[in-house]
Design a protein around this nucleic acid. Sequence first.
DNA 1: TTGATAAACGGACAATCGTCCGTTAACATC
DNA 2: GATGTTAACGGACGATTGTCCGTTTATCAA
Lengths: 204, 204
Amino acid sequence: MGVGGAVRGERRDAVESRRKVLGAARRLFEERGVDSVSMHEIGRVAGVGQGTLYRRFEHKGALCSALLGEEIEAFQDESRRRIGSRGTALGRLKWFLGRLAKFNEENAPLLGAVRDAAGGDRRIEMHRNPFYEGLREIVAGLLREASEEGEIRPGLDAECVADTLLAALNIDLYLYQRRELEMTRERIVDSLRSVVDGLRVPGE
Amino acid sequence: MGVGGAVRGERRDAVESRRKVLGAARRLFEERGVDSVSMHEIGRVAGVGQGTLYRRFEHKGALCSALLGEEIEAFQDESRRRIGSRGTALGRLKWFLGRLAKFNEENAPLLGAVRDAAGGDRRIEMHRNPFYEGLREIVAGLLREASEEGEIRPGLDAECVADTLLAALNIDLYLYQRRELEMTRERIVDSLRSVVDGLRVPGE
DNA sequence: TTGATAAACGGACAATCGTCCGTTAACATC
DNA sequence: GATGTTAACGGACGATTGTCCGTTTATCAA
């Protein structure tokens, strides 16, 4: 997903519509919250019809994903930089999980809306999308690396454990822990890091 | 949630409406799948109006929860029995996680529908409900017990780790792993159990 | 049995999502 | 600059969810 949601090869009017829609959505979401703004209203304020709106963004979740574009880019850039640097694989993994919690914190409303739109037929979009697949690849990659370095127990299922660690930071649970249970971000991250520590080879 | 969704103190016609709705829903869901049956259709087939339908069941998710009632009861009974029996706390925890995966497997469509209905304003219902709270209490309880017995590292955050272990079996991820990634249930459960093993005290 | 009352009923209605399709306009080609 | 093709536009429309409210009926006490 490019910055600003730009897409190669779009006609000029299409680019303009996309820009207007994203602008209207961003403003309305800020004013009244993501949940209480309807797609019709976004179209009306943006000055485009429903057909146009839905041609650009398949559904509200896709629109929210596009709005997240820049944040995601920044998150991924920082992550790639940091993960490419020195340090143990497990150390970098722990850092990454903390960074992901911060990303949750900073983008909770849009992330929630993305999740809400991914039900029924669109259930798989929750996980089969470039963002989640990127997260998964990073975590699984670090786990494999840690395994090769002998940092963690051999025989661990990197892919499956990656899904588990990421599930611990899914937006629903995160918001429940933060808002309902009033856990701090630090507590959540520390706990998850203690689980990661359990992957280490015993007695070392 | 009582068997059959019965509720104390309901008027006779209310009980009858509830029964008719649950019966119609069960049949329609079986015939055509949960997602492609509308609430209006359930009302029509059950022979009750919309007002009645929504008075009995606040939303489609609540209706699906009620349909899950007996399954949940059986699951909880078996769990309580087994968890009250002998064995290490960690061993019982591992059994429980496997049993929960089986519960997911057997009730995927309804669980998915319950999740779908829990968005926006109803986000917290995903976790703040008797079923999830029961799961959480069981897992956290076993972790505390394991901690007291010296089976697992001291200082672990039982509540937070419980949420993490349960998140690994949330229905969205579970269906993604099973259907998209084509992982077996055994693989998923084994992986999670290996994470649980990481909680043990080192070198024992 | 009758009458009061509170709960339940039912269907119209409002809101929202997402689709469809006839119309319009960008852009490449001549 | 004229023209044809193809994508984009826009708003009506269908489907679904969930609410509202006037009407009906179960229940209980006299």
